[in-house]
Design a protein around this nucleic acid. Sequence first.
DNA 1: ATGCCGAAGATACTTCGA
Length: 262
Amino acid sequence: MKLATWNVNSLKVRLPQVVQWLTDNPVDVLCLQELKLDQPAFPVAEIEAAGYQSFWYGQKTYNGVALLVRAGARVEQVECGIPGYDDEQRRVIAATVDGVRIVCAYFVNGEAVDSPKYLYKLKWLSMMQEYVSSQLLRYPAFALLGDFNIAPDDRDVYDPLAWKDKVLCSEPERAAFTRLLALGLSDAFRLFEAEGGQYSWWDYRAAMFRRGLGVRIDHILLSAALRRRAVECTIDKTPRGWERPSDHAPVRVVLGPDNEVA
DNA sequence: ATGCCGAAGATACTTCGA
């Protein structure tokens, strides 16, 4: 089973790239963030023509998340938003795909540590913590994928000194990421790569991608049951080099068969 | 110290992203 996540920064603009990427990378589930599409505007037919079912939670201009699921896969228990959290911003969609619980999330950016949006981010992170905790009790085969807007440690930042205590890198954000791991989740990328210098987001400005200056903020977290099956996890920089790219790159994980004896 | 780029809504600039 193959899972991936990609912040597309407008699905309207990036639709041809999403279809191209799925053709080149026929994953079972692709989690999308920042659709920037009103709910009725979702390109269901185009996604279906590419061989995928669509489940989405759209919002005009901002936010919006989707699960693209390979045709033929069994999809159950689709859930939008965090239950019990009345959040106007549409950032979460979940579903069970062929027995694996998938949560796709667009974490709050926060703007800056002295911003009111940062307080919203911390509140949102605590709600996500509770949500993931309760999901794990129900679904042992669990994966959380998305744009976390958190660089877990200094290996994930091109200039840790410049980013020290800044949004994406502040201690409270990193502590929230660590708390998610403490629920029994593993950062799939770090199962295979201990070195720094691999990033998933590069600022459009100042030719940051060309200069190799980025941040790793898009992640795939796996429960113990899925961690055992993980074979590889890679960041695909290819689409970041295309014309009119998203500022984020897709992240992909390959899971082997479930060999556990029931 | 600030903007750089890019998307979107509005309609010539502003808001937001990270």
